[in-house]
């Protein structure tokens, strides 16, 4: 254990540099740069609100007021795209750094870890747009609003878990990239980004969606942001929090073990 901490301390500067590199290079060639992190979710929010708020509108009552439907969509989209881009880039992180892995020794977990962190930092920046739209539309801001940090932390754990696991698998099986795209699409439709689960009539589908830990994270986040109420005092929300947190940490343990067991073989396969 002491050995790991020592090596981490030695390479913490590299971790910082890799995170910085990811953020810098992502927007280097675009004119608007980091503004895109704010603009892009805003524009998708407008499109999705137009489509699912009017064209395919469902006017039954839910616990979320329909005036805040843009916020509802924005929350779902921001959290989902954080997970999808972190897991995708994390998955490719070992392979895209193969030139480096072949030539110098660096603890290999730094690659998935840094990719997840830089995506996460971009995600945190994009929350600014949520705050702006939220204030304009008048979301209730209470002491409970700070609880929004909890589902965001769970999301971070889940991103790292998926990056560790997928980056390992991707070294041995390249076509997992295409498979993961399909799985991500499934996860997206099961995350209730632009519809209300409460409105669904099919109990089985409802049950399946509630098994999706990403949906639980998004629901927790929405509950705090849109209603300004505590997720700890509401039994259903607390159950979702417990479930998604347990899922994420177990996934993290599996991801780390799989990665650690196989990392010495990476160099023979990339």
């Amino acid at each position: 254990m002491k050995k790991y901490i020592e090596s981490f301390m030695r390479y913490r500067f590299l971790l910082m540099e890799l995170i910085k590199k990811g953020i810098k290079l992502k927007y280097r060639r675009s004119y608007l740069g980091l503004i895109w992190t704010l603009l892009e979710p805003l524009l998708t929010m407008l499109v999705l609100t137009a489509v699912f708020g009017s064209l395919f509108a469902n006017h039954s009552e839910t616990k979320y007021p329909s005036s805040l439907f843009p916020i509802y969509i924005l929350c779902g989209r921001l959290l989902y795209s954080c997970f999808s881009s972190a897991s995708k880039i994390g998955m490719k992180s070992v392979r895209s750094n193969q030139a480096m892995i072949k030539k110098v020794y660096v603890p290999k977990y730094l690659y998935p870890l840094s990719s997840v962190i830089y995506n996460y930092v971009i995600f945190l920046l994009s929350l600014i747009i949520l705050a702006i739209v939220g204030i304009i539309l008048g979301i209730p801001i209470t002491w409970h609003s700070f609880e929004a940090i909890i589902p965001i932390i769970v999301l971070f754990v889940m991103c790292i878990a998926s990056a560790m696991f997928l980056s390992t698998v991707c070294v041995f099986f390249r076509d997992i990239e295409y498979l993961w795209d399909v799985i991500l699409m499934l996860i997206m439709y099961c995350s209730a980004i632009f519809y209300h689960v409460e409105n669904m009539h099919n109990e089985t589908v409802k049950f399946v969606i509630q098994l999706n830990p990403l949906y639980c994270i998004i629901e927790n986040f929405r509950y705090v942001v849109i209603l300004g109420k505590s997720i700890i005092t509401d039994p259903q929300e607390l159950w979702m929090l417990g479930y998604s947190a347990a899922f994420s940490f177990i996934a993290l343990a599996i991801g780390v073990i799989v990665f650690k067991k196989n990392q010495d073989k990476f160099i023979l396969h990339i």
């Binding site: 500067f13 590299l14 480096m100 072949k102």
Partner: peptide, 23 residues
């Protein structure tokens, strides 16, 4: 090894330097 082609020389000094374990 560890240079990034899109980075300038200056940025690469810090990147490659940290690969070698310098602060």
């Amino acid at each position: 090894a560890g240079f990034d082609p899109n980075y300038t020389g200056r940025e690469n000094i810090f990147l490659y330097g940290s690969v070698l374990g310098f602060s």
